[in-house]
Amino acid sequence: MTAVLQARGLGKRYRRRWALSECTLAIPAGRVVGLVGPNGAGKTTLLHLAVGLLSPSAGAIEVLGGQPDSDPRHLGRVGFVAQETPTYSALTVADHLRLGAHLNPGWDSQLAGSRIEQLGLDPAQRAGKLSGGQRAQLALTLAIAKRPELLLLDEPVASLDPLARREFLQGLMEVVAEHGVSVVLSSHLVADLERVCDHLVILVASRVRLAGDVDDLLASHHLLIGPRRDLATLPDNQQVISARHTDRQSTLFIRTDAPILDPSWTVEQVSLEDIVLAYMSQAAGTRPGRGPGLGVQR
């Protein structure tokens, strides 16, 4: 498994505050990766380091096998859609495409033009007059028309309404289907990413809490409900992520690759959101069990 993005002991300090510290992770190629974590976990800092907008204070980061600095050839291989999808409000949509064509040797003007047409954007419209969803689509068009091998998106749908969010992700997935680009999307809400990700990285306080293919994660996490039980009596291959007990009942959120054979448990399947919440609340040191308990619906 080759990594498109690899960080080792990566850290970034602003004056005395560490925005990211001792971050070690590897993001595999050919996936749509969800980078999920609470606000302040260091997601934006990590992505900015990955596109060379910041340089690390500690450790190292490699993107597509190279240092992400301001080397133009390397910049051309990575597409980036920044948070709140900035565009030049005084420039028109057509100006933005011309900007992309001027600044990127690998610019695919046919792709850009047809996407703008498909989205129904008026090329003469100023970017400042576009809706949030349209602006995000414009920023995405700029990022993909340079034909990158890796596309990084920082909270691209956080500020969009549900319809715009769906349309944005549809557009993104069409690009993945057509061009086979690797994608990393960050979000503080896994719900935004559930449909589109096939790999998930949970980042809490700079640290990777969990990383894996979504199918594997869904298959290996379960919610067990049954009579009160001492955790020490569980089989060794069952890792308890969180546990909650009443006088008579135990509710366990566990990870295991083996089938659960104990008939005293009622086994519930969990959604991706349940998994994320369980790991986040475990890291935050809140009462375990609150996360998974919320999301169980059958």
């Binding site: 050919g30 996936r31 749509v32 769906r166 992700l169 549809q170 997935m173 069409e174 993945v176 289907a177 057509e178 449909r195 589109v196 990700c197 096939d198 199918d215």
Partner: peptide
């Protein structure tokens, strides 16, 4: 086709392929 499913459901093409 994969592209049809992807653009209708906004899901990952790898999912459809799989």
């Amino acid at each position: 086709t994969v592209k049809d499913v992807v653009s209708r459901l906004a899901i990952n093409p790898n999912t459809v392929l799989k």
